[in-house]
Amino acid sequence: MPVAPVVGPVVSSALLIFCHDLNGLSPQIRDILRQQAETGITVHLVVNGDGHSSGNTIFIPNRALFAKAHAKAQEGRIIPGNADLVLLAAFNELPRYDRYLVMEYDVFYNGSLPALVSHIFSSYPDHDFASTFIRPYKGNERWPWWSSLRRGRHGANHTARLYAFMQLALYSHAALQALSNAVEDDWTGHHEVLHATLFRSMHLRMGVFEQDPILRFDAMTFAAVGPCVMKGDGFLHHPVKWSS
């Protein structure tokens, strides 16, 4: 009898693009939304605002987020530090995926965006969480949101905390489920310190893109400057949110 080939588990992945206004999508984002079938990348557009969800577009209004009973929702605001309320609402509404790559709508990649997404999914197959960078408390004491973190009703030692820059971040299903459970248990705080600290406390596998051999980082990568085009292929850029 012929021996059937051994087939590994099929891993499902999705790119989640977060935005506030459909009119503000960059040409890069519009292209990858149009190219889903030919690239094989499943893309969901997650809009923090009012609207009718259909197809791969999900609307998450603030009134639904702030109606939750947990402490994070009781803050009654998205900015600063509660963008993960939108992420968790989308996580609970979406079909189940094994991995989720989350990207803000105004992240610019000087290269092929489908190639970037495919590279991240293929290069971090066992990671529960990866982001642009992760920093410890020591040496970064002036970062303003350390004290926002509460484990349930209790604070935590600053030196045990990490913060992460998450305009581009990869999560496993297990990590997002752990985050959802923690928030329901009244963990609260700025998401940039909550996520990294929680995942480390659970001994989940974490990584950073700034050490990636393909992605290119220099002094202007993800720096707080206005919109611009990076010189050279492979650079990432995230502009300042200018106020009007």
Rank of each mutant, 00 (worst) to 15 (best):
L194T: 07
R161H: 06
F199G: 03
K231T: 14
P95G: 08
G234H: 04
P125Q: 04
V43Q: 06
A156S: 12
V10M: 11
H195A: 05
A73Q: 06
G51P: 08
L65H: 08
N82S: 04
S122I: 02
W242N: 13
F222Y: 11
V102H: 02
A115W: 06
A174Y: 00
H191G: 01
R135V: 00
G152S: 08
E75L: 13
Q177A: 15
L94P: 00
L87H: 11
L168N: 03
F222W: 11
A174F: 06
F18D: 09
H203G: 01
Q28R: 05
T159D: 15
Y100L: 03
I120P: 01
G40W: 04
I58Q: 07
A196K: 03
E184C: 08
L94W: 06
Y105C: 11
H70D: 15
R63T: 10
W145E: 05
L15D: 01
R205E: 12
D218R: 10
F217P: 04
R135H: 11
S13I: 00
G234Y: 01
G55S: 06
M103V: 10
R30C: 12
L116G: 05
I32Y: 01
P80E: 06
V7P: 05
M230A: 15
I78P: 06
R200W: 08
R30I: 01
H20R: 14
I41T: 07
G207N: 11
W146I: 02
D185N: 15
H173I: 00
